[in-house]
């Protein structure tokens, strides 16, 4: 028995990690959600969450996340589809992935310059005759930058799904007289739907909890659930309310994962 314990000692660090950094944090969030700002036990945070202020916040966060996911999908699906038809597809794919490895903050910073009053975007608008306008600190710039950041994450699972498609199925469909659009609608789309679901999952959840871009690009005009949590933890120091929002975010996350099924990103 003793020997067996020693033999299995190698898994101790990993087990300790699960307990301390996976299980405990969630329980701590749950525990803190029952305390008000003065440290008294209460359910006030949950009551507050269901007031119009927080419900509106949740709804608008959902709206933006849905918009970001939808636009990303509309860009990513054709990209992944065309990508799978190119000759050196792995190389092209790598080319699309590389920007996603560049530090997120730098990309956000670049857009501060591009969308600035005299930045490239305004120069372009000037040039095509629309004239310059306020771009930074608007909903538009927020959605644009978020889509920019998430698109590679959406492309990868969809590309893998399309790439894994058996070409014989498409040949069969063509041979049986299906038109190109029918083949796409009845064969390709259903068979790659798993990739689409994964892509939506890896975009929607982070989009709900964006907080850095909301400050740098949207200038606090957009408040997501993530921004609200950050605000409560680091600015107003109301950890109870912050934890309550976090708990709801976790619940939402579980529902989404249930709906879309867990996949390792890009698998």
């Amino acid at each position: 028995m003793n020997k067996k314990v020693i033999r299995n000692l190698y898994m101790a660090p990993y087990a300790v990690w699960i307990l301390i950094f996976v299980v405990a944090p969630i329980l701590l969030l749950l525990y803190y959600s029952f305390f008000d700002i003065h440290g008294e036990f209460s359910l006030i945070n949950y009551q507050r969450f269901f007031t119009p202020v927080y419900l509106k916040l949740t709804l608008s966060s959902f709206w933006y996340a849905a918009l970001i996911t939808l636009i990303s999908l509309l860009i990513s699906y054709p990209t992944a589809y065309f990508l799978s038809k190119t000759k050196h597809k792995q190389l092209w794919l790598l080319l699309i992935i590389v920007p996603s490895w560049v530090n997120l903050l730098l990309k956000a910073y670049a857009f501060i310059g591009i969308f600035g009053a005299y930045g490239a975007a305004n120069n372009f608008l000037e040039w095509i005759g629309i004239g310059s306008r306020q771009l930074l600190f608007t909903d538009f710039s927020f959605v644009f930058v978020a889509v920019y950041i998430f698109v590679p994450f959406m492309i990868l699972p969809i590309f893998n799904a399309i790439n894994g498609l058996n070409p014989a199925l498409i040949d069969a469909s063509n041979d049986l007289g299906a038109s190109k659009s029918t083949t796409f609608r009845r064969v390709i789309l259903p068979l790659t739907f798993e990739g689409v679901k994964t892509g939506c999952q890896v975009v929607f959840i982070p989009a709900l909890s964006l907080f850095m871009i909301t400050r740098l690009i949207a200038g606090n005009r957009v408040i997501t659930l993530g921004t609200a949590i950050e605000q409560h933890f680091l600015v107003t120091q109301d950890w109870g309310m912050g934890s309550t929002i976090a708990i709801f975010l976790i619940l939402i996350m579980f529902v989404i994962i249930r709906l879309t099924g867990f996949r390792k990103r890009g698998a």
């Binding site: 701590l28 969030l29 907080f211 950050e230 976790i250 996350m253």
Partner: peptide, 17 residues
């Protein structure tokens, strides 16, 4: 769990921890 959790939640809960 930590793969799919949003960064904000990981950060906030680690701060409490």
């Amino acid at each position: 769990v930590l793969m799919v959790s949003p960064d904000v939640i990981i950060g906030a809960s680690f701060l409490i921890l």
